[in-house]
Design a protein around this nucleic acid. Sequence first.
DNA 1: TATTGTTATACTCTATAACTATA
DNA 2: TATAGTTATAGAGTATAACAATA
Lengths: 158, 158
Amino acid sequence: MDMEARGHSEHPEALRLWLRMLTLTQLVEKQVRTQLREQFDTTLPRFDLMAQLERKPDGLKMNELSRRMMVTGGNVTGITDQLVAEGLVERALVEGDRRAYRVRLTPRGRTQFGDMARQHESWIVAAFEGLAPGEVETLYQLLGKVKQHYNDTPLETA
Amino acid sequence: MDMEARGHSEHPEALRLWLRMLTLTQLVEKQVRTQLREQFDTTLPRFDLMAQLERKPDGLKMNELSRRMMVTGGNVTGITDQLVAEGLVERALVEGDRRAYRVRLTPRGRTQFGDMARQHESWIVAAFEGLAPGEVETLYQLLGKVKQHYNDTPLETA
DNA sequence: TATTGTTATACTCTATAACTATA
DNA sequence: TATAGTTATAGAGTATAACAATA
């Protein structure tokens, strides 16, 4: 076949889907980063960490944060240090394990995160307002299917 | 309404869609970066730059690369310098404008990019193989719709 | 010994702004 | 004056690895 001669063209659909998804994600992400910086003088990882804590009043351990944020432990330490210094989160003791902490939002952190989250949501809603509600749901379901399969098939290292 | 009292819950569908899309993109992107490093000792921006040049035998100017890669000019200079030093791309003169260059793949760069692109495509195909062909197309169309609207509605700065 | 978290370090990627050369 | 590209710099963001304290 001649198609194969071009080198990489047997599954161009998945590839162009990926490129579109990557571009769109970068576009939205870049805007979110800019606005977080301009309006709240913060960064996406800091916002992400606080978002992880929002629905966990008892907090999360460092390694739980590390796993959820998909970054290594040392980085979580650094981000947490910053937020602690600003009084937005705190390290609380874990009963029965003196090595670990529960990191949780302070009241001030909770208030400030609420402000940010409200704005953040409006940016995201604006980004996707080109879709009808049913299309949002379809997109959500399809991406869930991809993620599901991706998680079930760990790193085949091609 | 009580729903609104939670602070940010009027359009949670768009928000959870975004979070899923962001997570999935980061997952795939992280894997691609790791494999590019391990198998080809290169990075995603370098791969991206070469990919931009692949279908342009005459090359692209620096500012065109900058726009397509969505990064500022100084960064393109740095990445290009690396690739030139390795003999993978070259700066060619532009007739009639001695300020500008056309950056293009060398024969060696073209060969090497072919190898990388083949592998890259296999990783991407594997990432999306949980979808039926029709679903890939649906996803592609829906993301196109989002992107279209997003581009038409530049930075409302909420 | 293994685990939790911290520290130290280095590298990639990025933006900003000042700069040079040419248009 | 404006544009193409470079240089210099600073700061996110990340991973790796060695380390201390506790389990």
